[in-house]
Structures are given as structure tokens and as C-alpha cells.
């Protein structure tokens, strides 16, 4: 039977990271589509009972590597484990979070196994592919906005296995498959998987802060783009967000211009959000940005250009200057709020 495997990242708090749970949810669906098993590889320290956390996502096999040296994450031991495990179990598909860990690890594995890897996918589907006179069925479509932004590319790896992809946190939905689902845990013997000199890089110190901004969890987002114009002007968006009980988000152009910190970037290479209300201020609506917000329930666009692409997906379009409109919104909200 074919298998799909998810590399489960372990957080500072010794839980499986949200992004991995999201990938397990997606992995379960893909596994059903191609009649495969869903498997997980979990590597860390003190992981007793971790299986209980993830079984409900529909996992059939967990490969567990539990050793004090395996947390915090270091490239070489994790890479050796995953490479050797994949050689053994030859997964059909392997999914990784597009996090600082996943994006450090996945390319190393793809290189060793000489297989394809697509970064930052915004959608994963199963489909077929024709090349000359060959047809490949049940391939993984790795879909992502590509170059320049006017296009969406569908990438496939017809010949090599596993088919590997990374996906950012928030892109896939986290859904429990079956609360009582139970697979099996395989406690693995680490020594059979490590390479020599895998602990060459020493971690001398770590300073990891609890997550500061959580725009992903916010129901209301006031997002600013390059059109907001300055760091100063962003304060006005902050004010609107505060009044409405939301968070401020931004486009990459605004982040690059130094108007606001990177943590608030929304889009293909930022966070993906699905709030009740998304207020896009001075945002043109490039596909990489929309990839992170087009699932919002209601979208308001404030733009002085009627033709801005974002307007096409907005429920309300306010044609005007951000610095004009936002103060009025604040004023009118205050007037009517109960």
C-alpha cells in the first residue's frame, strides 16, 4: 500500500506544531484520494504520549525517534533520520511545514534522495500528468503562485519519489479526522539512522520568545500596503484595528519599505489568514498577497485606484485615499458602536 508521510515538527512546549497538524489533515485527505496510509515521523525528546495528540488526525503509523539529543532541532541528525527512514519506507508523498525547520530540512532530504521539492505550496491536489506518450496517474499537484504574480503554477514530480512539498502555517485547515482513530507507534532505534559527525554543530544558546503577534487568530484584520505610504501612516491603521478589536497586517511591499515588522506579512510568503473581516488599505492585490487572505469572509478595499485588482474580490470598495477614509471609519464606528 502507498504511504503519505508528514514530518511533524515539535514546538518549544513539546507539542506537535500547528502547521504539522494542518498537514496531517490535508495528508489524510490525499491519502484517501489515492488509497494510501497516512504516516508521521516525529523526532524529538520526551515525546511520551505524543501519539495521543495526533492519532485523531487519522494516522496509521507513527515513526517515533525519542532522544535527548534530538531537541532542539539540528539539521544533521534530523536529516540523517529522515533520509534513511525514507529510503526504507519509500513514501509516495512527503509533506513539511514551510517553517525555519521545514525549509532547512526538506531541501537537504530532496537533495540526498534526488527528488523534487516545491516550496510554499498554496494548494495540494491529486491528478494525472501526460508527458510525451506516458501518462502518470495519481500524482501530487503542487500548486503555488509563481514568478511575478500573474500566474499560478502547477508543479509535478512524475518520476521521482517521494513527491515533496512545503506548506506554510495556516494554508491548510486543521481538522480532526476521527477522535477515536488509532494507528500504531513504531519506536525507532536511533543509532541505526544517524550518520557520523551528525552532532558537529553545537547550539550554544537559544532565545525563543512566545509568539508576540497572532494575526492568524484574529477575526478582524486591518491590512496595509505600499499605498499607506509611511510608518507614521500605519499608526492610523493600528488605531482602526484597536477600535475594532483586530490586528494589523501588511503586504510584502509595506514590509520591505520598512513600514511594519515582517511578522505581520500576509500572503504566500507570510501568514495565511481567514478572518471575518479584512480591510485592505492601499493594497493592489497581487496574487501572492491574495493567496494569504482570499478566504476572508468579508473584504473591504480602500484604494484610490478603481482598477486595483483587489477590488475584484472585495465585497465593498471604497474609492479614496487611505488617510482620508480610515479616520472617517474610526469616527463612524465610535459613533455607532454599542
Amino acid at each position: 500500500m502507498k504511504n503519505i508521510i508528514v514530518y511533524c515538527e515539535i514546538t518549544e512546549e513539546q507539542h506537535v506544531a500547528d502547521v504539522s497538524l494542518e498537514l496531517l489533515s490535508k495528508g489524510r485527505k490525499l491519502a484517501d484520494d489515492i488509497q494510501a496510509k497516512l504516516e508521521a515521523v516525529v523526532i524529538g525528546s520526551d515525546l511520551q504520549h505524543i501519539e495521543k495528540e495526533i492519532y485523531p488526525f487519522g494516522i496509521d503509523t507513527i515513526y517515533l525517534f525519542d532522544d535527548a539529543r534530538l531537541f532542539p532541532y539540528r539539521t544533521l541528525p534530523h536529516a540523517s533520520i529522515v533520509i534513511n527512514l525514507f529510503r526504507e519506507i519509500t513514501p509516495e508523498i512527503a509533506l513539511f511545514g514551510a517553517t525555519s525547520v521545514g525549509r532547512d530540512l526538506a531541501p537537504r532530504i530532496a537533495s540526498a534522495l534526488r527528488c523534487g521539492l516545491t516550496a510554499d505550496c498554496t494548494s495540494l491536489e491529486i491528478g494525472s500528468y501526460e508527458d510525451k506518450d506516458k501518462t502518470f496517474d495519481q500524482l501530487l499537484y503542487q500548486i503555488r503562485p509563481a514568478f511575478g504574480g500573474n500566474i499560478i503554477a502547477t508543479i509535478v514530480n512524475p518520476e521521482t519519489r517521494p513527491q515533496m512539498a512545503t506548506v506554510r502555517e495556516g494554508v491548510m485547515k486543521k481538522e480532526v479526522f476521527n477522535a477515536d482513530y488509532q494507528g500504531q507507534v513504531k519506536k525507532m532505534n536511533l543509532e541505526n539512522y544517524l550518520g557520523k559527525d551528525d552532532f558537529q554543530v553545537e547550539i550554544l544558546e537559544r532565545q525563543i520568545e512566545p509568539q508576540k503577534v497572532n494575526i492568524k487568530g484574529s477575526q478582524i484584520i486591518v491590512a496595509g500596503g505600499y499605498g499607506v505610504g509611511s510608518k507614521e501612516n500605519f499608526k492610523l491603521l493600528q488605531e482602526l484595528a484597536e477600535v475594532l478589536g483586530g490586528e494589523v497586517g501588511a503586504t510584502r511591499a509595506a514590509v520591505d519599505a520598512g513600514f511594519i515588522e515582517h511578522e505581520r506579512q500576509i500572503g504566500q510568503t507570510g501568514v495565511t489568514v481567514r478572518p471575518k473581516l479584512y480591510i485592505a488599505c492601499g493594497i493592489s492585490g497581487a496574487v501572492q498577497h491574495r493567496a494569504g487572505m482570499d478566504q476572508s469572509a468579508k473584504i473591504i478595499s480602500i484604494n484610490n485606484d478603481v482598477e486595483a485588482p483587489i477590488n475584484a474580490i472585495a465585497d465593498y470598495v471604497i474609492v479614496g485615499d487611505v488617510m482620508d477614509v480610515v479616520p472617517k471609519m474610526i469616527k463612524m464606528y465610535k459613533k455607532h458602536a454599542k
Partner: peptide, 12 residues
Amino acid sequence: PTKVKKIDNVVL
């Protein structure tokens, strides 16, 4: 190993 299966123009 990665092949571009298709490129879609973004239709809004």
C-alpha cells in the same frame, strides 16, 4: 525532477 504541468493566468 520538478516539471511545470501548467501555468494558469490568475482569473479573478
